Simulated assay, not measured.
Amino acid sequence: MPVPGGELAVGVWDTEDPDAPTVVAVHGVTSSHLAWELLAEALPGVRIIAPDLRGRGHSNALQGPAGMRAHAADLAAVFEDLDLAPTVVVGHSMGGFVSVVFTYLHPELVTHLLLVDGGLPLAAPTGLSPDELVAAILGPTAARLSMRFADTDAYLDFWRGHPAFVGEWTPALERYLAYDLVPDGDTLRPATSYAMTVEDTVDLHTGTTILDAVRGIHRPTTLITVPRGLQNESPGLYPRDHLAALLAEHPEMQHQRWEEFNHYTVVLAEAGAVALAGVIAGHLAAPAH
C-alpha cells in the first residue's frame, strides 16, 4: 500500500468470516510481519494485520523518515487503507514502542494495547554515539545486518546455533528467517536497513517521544515481560529493579511476567504464541473503552 516514500508491505491472515475480529500486530526492530505467523495459527477466527515496517522485510526499499512517529504514521495509513475499525494493537520489542506512540497519537483507533517485551523505556547506557548505542542494545542482532550469505541454507545455519532458539527450531521459524533475505550481488543479506535501525534506536533513547506517549496513553494496556533477552541472557531487556520503577510510575498498566520465555520465543515459539493468543482473545472479548 502507498505511504510517503514508497510502498509498505502488509501481511494479512484472513478468515472466511467477514465479521471476524481484527488484530493489528507490529514486529520488532530487525524483524518482519512473519513474526506473527504462529500467533495467527493460534487465533484461527481472528484476522491478523501485520505490516513490514519501513526498512524491513518487503518494505526494505521504502526510504524516507524513520523513528517511532514515522512508523506510527504508516500504521495509521494501514488503518485508513484497509478501513479498519478500532481494535486491539499488539507490539513486540520495537513494535511495542511504535504501538505506544500510535496509541498516543490515534487513541480513537485502539481499544486495547498489548506490549510484548517492549514499549516502556529501556535502561539504556548514556553518552554513546549512535553506532555504539545500537551495538550496546542490539549487539549481534545489529552486527548481523552487515553480514552476507551464500544462500538461504547458509543463513539458516547461522541461526541454528543461536542461543535463543535452542530446542525451538520449527518450520515456521525457518520461513520467518528465509523471508528476511534479499539479493546483494551474488550473495544474500538481511533485508533490514542498518541506517534505519540506527535512526530508530536513537529515537527510542533520546528526546521525550516515548515518555510523552507512555504518559499520555488512555487505553487499557497490558505489558508482558520475560526474564531473558536477545541472546537468551539474563536479565533481559527489563531488569527487575528497572521494571519495578516503571510499573510504580504507571500503576494503571497491567503487567505479566512470563518466566519461561526469552525475548524471541515469547513470539516466535508455539508456546509463546499460544499464550499471547489467550491474552488477545481476552482483550477482544472485553468491552471497548
Rank of each mutant, 00 (worst) to 15 (best):
P2R: 11
P4E: 06
E7P: 03
V10C: 06
G11V: 10
G11S: 11
D14N: 10
A25W: 09
A25I: 14
H27V: 13
G28N: 09
T30R: 00
H33S: 14
W36V: 13
E37L: 08
L38H: 00
A40K: 00
L43E: 02
P44N: 03
V46S: 08
I49R: 04
P51G: 08
L53D: 02
G55H: 10
R56N: 12
R56W: 01
S59M: 05
A61P: 03
A61N: 04
L62D: 02
L62Y: 01
G64E: 02
P65R: 07
A66I: 07
M68F: 07
M68H: 07
M68Q: 07
R69C: 06
R69V: 12
A70I: 11
A72L: 07
D74M: 10
L75F: 00
A76P: 07
A77D: 12
V78Y: 05
F79T: 13
F79N: 13
E80N: 13
E80G: 14
E80M: 09
D81Y: 01
D83T: 13
D83I: 11
L84T: 08
V88P: 05
V88L: 08
H92P: 13
S93F: 02
M94Y: 09
G96E: 05
F97N: 07
F97Q: 05
S99M: 11
F102N: 03
Y104F: 15
H106Y: 09
V110R: 06
V110C: 06
T111S: 09
L122T: 08
T126D: 12
T126V: 15
L128I: 11
L128Y: 02
S129D: 03
D131Q: 07
D131Y: 00
E132R: 06
E132A: 15
L138R: 07
A142F: 06
A143P: 04
A143V: 15
R144W: 00
S146A: 14
S146P: 02
R148M: 04
A150Y: 00
L156K: 03
F158P: 06
W159A: 11
G161P: 11
G161D: 12
H162Q: 09
A164H: 04
V166L: 12
T170C: 03
E174Y: 01
E174D: 15
R175N: 11
Y176F: 15
Y179R: 14
D180P: 09
D180A: 15
D180Q: 14
V182Y: 00
V182I: 15
G185W: 03
T187Y: 00
L188F: 08
P190E: 04
T192N: 01
Y194D: 15
A195H: 05
M196F: 10
M196A: 12
T197S: 02
V202S: 04
L204I: 13
L204Q: 06
T206I: 10
T208V: 14
L211T: 15
A213W: 02
P220W: 04
T222E: 04
I224M: 11
T225W: 00
V226Y: 01
Q231C: 10
S234A: 14
Y238W: 05
D241C: 08
D241W: 01
A244F: 04
L246P: 06
P251W: 01
R257S: 09
R257P: 02
W258Y: 08
H263Y: 11
H263F: 12
H263W: 12
T265R: 01
V266M: 02
L268H: 03
E270L: 09
G272S: 05
G272R: 01
A277H: 06
A277Q: 10
L284Q: 07
A285M: 12
A286N: 07
A286I: 08
H289P: 15
H289T: 15
